[in-house]
Design a protein around this nucleic acid. Structure first.
Lengths: 153, 153
DNA sequence: CAAGATTGACAGATCAATCTTG
DNA sequence: CAAGATTGATCTGTCAATCTTG
């Protein structure tokens, strides 16, 4: 078969190092995920917050850790979710420095619909289980190393 | 009495699906890369543009494909590189719709220094070669699938 | 009209600085 | 002061709309 014409089409350069493969794959995965739930008016960031709140309200600092974003990033994501009526902020009366984020009924409903929309599309991972297991090991190790450097501990 | 501090430390949840592992790893890899070259005043985005231009000037549309970003994204990255004197734009006289991006001597110099800074830090991938090979296969397949959907092919 | 590039509006993420509360 | 949260500035990235050139 002919390598038709120039690489105007998409191609993976065989000598990309893994870092580049990881970041390229990540961008595509997030975009695909976002495209699946775009009709609901949220993105992966909002989804992860609502998912973390499924068991009940959490203070923002803990929520940020769960979502693996900075407190500043989380604050703005919560801004959007609150604006759209998916969560509400309430000061923690036990320690008024804390702000508790509560999911609203609308937010819980949104989460359910988002889960249904995305569960069908998670079959993007075709290769053998051996390969995906190996992939998990490599990625987990990267995350642990770099995450420990960055997030302390 | 509040909960003694829980996993305030970093941890990889064992039942994360691969998508989440990939995106988490990607963010950390990019941040680590950016931290390594931050002193030079560029990020991974600028680095990739300069790297793509190492062999000589390119029109922006091709450059965007090489860097795997939208033409709009590239335009703003080139804005920054041009502002800082690392590249210059020149209209292609053969086809005046095109804009050719040329690296400046300062840009070429920056690229060299960035390469030196980062080459030392690429040993973040510790596991066996079998695992990394498997990881490459999985990631490549994800990229091909999603990239073909998105970027045409 | 089609291709190439740019601009506007926005989301996600970061760092640095600030405000509030303990 | 320390912890938690927020705000300002900036960067990367997206989509949609526009401008220029062929």
């Amino acid at each position: 078969m002919i390598m038709t014409n120039e690489p105007r089409s998409f191609a993976v350069d065989p000598d990309w190092h893994i870092g580049r493969l990881v970041t390229a794959a990540a961008r595509m995965l997030e975009q695909a995920f976002d495209a699946n739930i775009a009709e609901l008016g949220i993105t992966h960031a909002g989804f992860r917050v609502l998912d973390a709140l499924a068991a009940g309200p959490l203070p923002q600092n803990l929520l940020a850790v769960r979502c693996q974003v900075q407190a500043q990033t989380l604050s703005r994501i919560v801004d959007g979710l609150e604006r759209d009526g998916h969560v509400v902020r309430r000061r923690d009366e036990e320690d008024r420095r804390r702000v508790l984020v509560h999911p609203t009924p609308a937010g819980a409903d949104l989460l359910e619909r988002a889960r249904r929309l995305t569960s069908a599309h998670l079959d993007v991972f075709p290769t053998s289980t051996d390969d995906t297991d190996a992939c998990r090991r490599v990625l987990t190790q990267i995350i642990k190393r770099l995450g420990d450097d960055r997030w302390g501990r």
